[in-house]
C-alpha cells in the first residue's frame, strides 16, 4: 500500500499540485487523468522525489532504498541510440546492484523475465535506435519492470503510440498490476482508463477532485466541468 499526504508542488508562481493526499492499494492499476496542466506529471514527479515538493509519502527517504521500491517511466523517455535493448533493460537492476557491480545470474534472469513480460525478448540483441516508438516504449517499460519495485509510476506511457501499442502497453500494465505491483499511470485516453484501470483519480488545476472506480469518477459532470467535453465526445458548451 502506498500512501501520500498533503503533496504540494510550486512551479514558479503556479501551484501545480495543491495538498493532494491519497492511498493506492497493492495490485491496483490507477489512471491519473486530467486536462493538460492539471498537475498529473508534477504529482508523479513529486511522489518520485524528482522535483521539490512538500508533504510526505510512506516510501523510504533514502535515495537508494526508494529506488528499489519505486520505478519511474518518464514521459519523454530516451536512451542511447547505439545500445542494445538487453543492456538498456538491464539498467533497471541498478538500484539492486549499484552502478559499479556486474549483473548476477539472478539479475540476468529477472531482466529476461521483464523482457518476456513486455514481449521484447525476440529483439533483445537489436540496437535501440533501430526500434519503432512503440517498441522503444516497451523496452523502457521492461526496464522499469526489471526493477521489481512495489510501485510503478508511468507518466503518459501511451500518449505517442498507435492503437495497437496503446493496447499492448496497457495490457502489460494490467498484467503487472495483477501480479501485485501498484501502478499509477498518467493517461489522456479516458476509454483506456475505463477499460484497463481499477481506479481513476481525476486532477484539475492542481487538486485531486475525484477518485474511485471509472464508473464512479468519469461522470457526465466531471467530463463537463474538468475535461470540458460531453459523454458523447463533443466539446461542452
Amino acid at each position: 500500500m502506498i500512501t501520500f499526504n498533503n503533496i504540494s508542488v510550486q512551479l514558479g508562481t503556479k501551484k501545480a499540485v495543491n495538498n493532494v493526499s491519497a492511498t493506492a492499494k497493492s495490485g491496483e492499476l490507477i489512471a491519473l487523468v486530467g486536462p493538460n496542466g492539471s498537475g498529473k506529471s508534477s504529482l508523479i514527479k513529486a511522489i518520485s522525489a524528482l522535483i521539490p515538493h512538500t508533504g510526505s509519502t510512506n516510501l523510504p527517504q533514502n535515495r537508494r532504498a526508494r529506488s528499489k521500491q519505486l520505478a519511474y517511466l518518464a514521459q519523454n523517455v530516451t536512451a542511447p541510440r547505439h545500445h542494445l535493448v538487453r543492456d538498456i533493460v538491464a539498467l533497471g537492476r541498478t538500484p539492486h546492484i549499484g552502478s559499479l557491480s556486474q549483473l548476477s545470474k539472478t539479475d540476468v534472469t529477472k531482466v529476461e523475465a521483464a523482457m518476456q513480460a513486455c514481449g521484447i525478448l525476440d529483439f533483445s540483441n537489436r540496437i535501440f535506435g533501430e526500434l519503432s516508438g512503440g517498441e522503444q516504449t516497451r523496452v523502457h517499460l521492461a526496464r522499469t519492470l526489471a526493477t521489481e519495485a512495489a510501485l510503478l509510476l508511468a507518466d503518459e506511457p501511451i500518449t505517442a503510440l498507435d492503437p495497437y501499442y496503446q493496447l499492448s502497453v496497457m495490457g502489460i500494465l494490467r498484467r503487472t498490476a495483477d501480479q501485485g505491483t501498484t501502478i499509477i499511470a498518467a493517461l489522456h485516453d479516458l476509454s483506456m482508463a475505463k477499460k484497463f484501470c481499477d481506479q481513476v483519480w481525476v486532477m484539475n488545476k492542481g487538486d485531486l477532485v475525484a477518485q474511485g472506480t471509472p464508473n464512479e469518477t468519469l461522470t457526465p459532470e466531471v467530463l463537463r466541468d474538468v475535461f470540458r467535453i460531453t459523454p458523447g465526445g463533443e466539446i461542452a458548451r
Binding site: L50, R63, A71, Y72, V77, A79, T94, S99
Partner: peptide, 23 residues
C-alpha cells in the same frame, strides 16, 4: 572511471537516472 557506470544510467535521462538511485 568511477563515474563511468553512473554515466551509463544517465544515458536514460537525468530524471530516470535519479529514479534509479543515481546522484
Amino acid at each position: 572511471c568511477l563515474s563511468g557506470p553512473a554515466l551509463r544510467v544517465l544515458g536514460l535521462g537525468e530524471e530516470t537516472a535519479r529514479s534509479l538511485g543515481i546522484s
